[in-house]
Every structure is written in structure tokens, then in C-alpha cells.
């Protein structure tokens, strides 16, 4: 197994994915959750770019990564806006206290 091989990239992607997932599930701060989501998106983008290079031998994976980056940027903008709206409404950004989904 080479060091700069597809496995390495996939493992890095997997670590980022695991970290992101755990962050998103466990953090109390909404900003923290948001960071987790960004990690997950990054891991997916890395995987796409890796597959693009090593298996598909075309640029289509990179196109997907492009779209992921763009969507992540869009998501960040919306997240910030939502965050500010939530902060104004509840004076708090602790996700544990946001339980209006409970009916």
C-alpha cells in the first residue's frame, strides 16, 4: 500500500466524517453543531476528489466537490442568519433549550 494512495484519502475523509458526526450530535452550542456539519461536507468533498483522481479518471468528481464547496458557503450564510434570528428570539444559542419541536 502506497502512502499517497486512495486508501489514505478515504481514511482521512472517514476521520473527518466521524469527527463531524460526533460534533453535530453531541455539542450544545449551535455554532459547534454547524462546525460538525462543515466537517462532514469537507470529508465528502475529499472523497469525491479522491475518487475523481484514482478511479473514475475524469474531472467529474472535482465538479461535485466544487458544488459541495459552493453549497457549504451558501449553508454558512443561511446558518449565520438563522443563528442571529434564534439569538434575537431566545437570547440563547444552546441547542438543548430549543425544544419547540416537541409540540
Amino acid at each position: 500500500m502506497e502512502i499517497i494512495g486512495i486508501q489514505s484519502y478515504l481514511v482521512i475523509g472517514q476521520i473527518l466524517f466521524a469527527a463531524g458526526l460526533l460534533t453535530a450530535v453531541s455539542k450544545r452550542n449551535i455554532i459547534g453543531i454547524f462546525m460538525g456539519i462543515e466537517l462532514i461536507l469537507n470529508s465528502a468533498a475529499i472523497n469525491f476528489a479522491a475518487f475523481s483522481k484514482f478511479t473514475a479518471v475524469s474531472l467529474e468528481g472535482q465538479v461535485f466537490s466544487m458544488f459541495i464547496i459552493v453549497l457549504a458557503a451558501a449553508e454558512a450564510a443561511i446558518a449565520l442568519a438563522l443563528l442571529l434570528a434564534i439569538y434575537k428570539r431566545y437570547d440563547d444559542i444552546n441547542a438543548d433549550n430549543l425544544t419547540t419541536l416537541k409540540l
Binding site: 454547524f34 462546525m35 462543515e38 469537507n42 466537490s65 464547496i69 457549504a72 450564510a77
Partner: peptide, 20 residues
């Protein structure tokens, strides 16, 4: 992709995070 990553994530998303 690498350049875009720098521009969008480091220049954009990180700053947004700090603002938040």
C-alpha cells in the same frame, strides 16, 4: 479546488464562524 477551498472556507466560512 484547492484555491477555491482557501477562498471560500478560510476566507468566507471561517470568518462567518468568528462573526457568529
Amino acid at each position: 479546488l484547492a484555491i477555491t477551498q482557501v477562498v471560500v472556507y478560510i476566507g468566507g466560512v471561517s470568518v462567518i464562524l468568528l462573526f457568529a
